[in-house]
């Protein structure tokens, strides 16, 4: 008679199994040539991959994903660190948690709503540009030139995800033993000194978590570029994951979609698995 716990875990195990099954199936499909033109798929090996790599959209989406991901990681990490440092020095606990909540609330806002709002904010007449004009500053051609478009999306991502980095940096600051802080204060360290000599060196864990999560969230960001590019019809905002959808829904090249999907899954897994086994598991299952 198997243990009751095993039976209780059946839904989790079953769905985990389905996930693995889907990933493998994905791999199989990617080795075929299934598309609107080939409704009955045949095995073609890496031909589909070759086809995929030859597409302009592939290179564009790869480039965009790189830009957005690196942009979010760089800015998110720095800004998150800055905000965490600012929050750390706020004396009132209540004020600090309220402020932290304000940096995090974008994650609770459905991306659909965010996309709706930001699209309008990037409107050249009445949005942010209006504010800039009122301040006698030059306007920025949001969503018009490619560069400005990239910046626009990065701004939205930073608004949405910096709170995440702030959270983890702040947590690692707060986890530094109080007696160490007090000893440092007695030694004359204040503000900047405290930050650079004590807090930062001890925030390695915060850095790792913040960077890993920023990478993963940036990688999977779909809704906002999708909606802001008019349902994936504008190439400027095409990322790897929106391109997958494009291949599936518009080009109906299912094998190509699967091939790209496999690629994305592999890249994601390369970060997730070490992160899970080293970062998360070590905390969970320490004996």
């Amino acid at each position: 008679m198997p243990r009751q716990a095993l039976i209780m875990a059946i839904p989790t195990l079953f769905l985990s199994g389905i996930l693995v099954f889907l990933l493998l199936w994905n791999l199989v499909i990617s080795l075929q040539n299934w598309s609107l033109f080939n409704p009955i798929p045949k095995f073609v090996g890496v031909e589909t991959y070759a086809y995929l790599f030859a597409q302009d959209f592939f290179h564009a989406s790869l480039q965009h994903t790189l830009i957005f991901t690196l942009g979010l990681i760089a800015i998110g990490d720095l800004l998150g660190l800055l905000l965490a440092a600012l929050l750390y020095f706020i004396p009132s606990n209540i004020q600090r948690s309220i402020y932290l909540s304000i940096f995090i609330y974008p994650l609770a806002v459905p991306p659909t709503a965010s996309a709706l709002i930001w699209l309008w904010l990037f409107n050249p007449q009445i949005g942010i540009d209006w504010v800039l004009t009122s301040l006698h500053l030059p306007t920025i051609p949001w969503l018009v030139t490619p560069t400005a478009t990239y910046i626009a999306l990065i701004i939205v991502e930073v608004w949405a995800y910096t709170g995440l980095a702030t959270l983890f940096y702040l947590a690692s600051f707060l986890s530094v033993n109080r007696s160490i802080i007090e000893a440092a204060r007695l030694d004359g360290a204040t503000g900047k000194g405290l930050l650079f000599r004590i807090l930062l060196p001890n925030s390695m864990s915060g850095f790792i978590v913040a960077t890993a999560l920023l990478f993963l969230f940036s990688f999977r960001i779909f809704d906002i570029p999708f909606i802001m590019s008019g349902s994936a019809t504008s190439p400027t905002l095409m990322t790897l994951v929106t391109y997958i959808y494009y291949l599936y829904a518009y080009a109906e090249s299912f094998s190509a979609a699967a091939a790209l999907a496999t690629l994305v899954a592999v890249i994601a897994a390369a970060v997730i698995i070490p992160y899970a086994l080293l970062g998360l598991k070590r905390w969970v299952f320490r004996r």
């Binding site: 985990s16 996930l19 199936w25 779909f222 899954a265 992160y275």
Partner: peptide, 18 residues
């Protein structure tokens, strides 16, 4: 644990076709 971590962080779009 590895599988559920993967499932939690993998972009949903990777599984669209299957």
């Amino acid at each position: 644990f590895s599988i559920i971590s993967l499932a939690a962080f993998l972009p949903a779009q990777t599984l669209i076709v299957p």
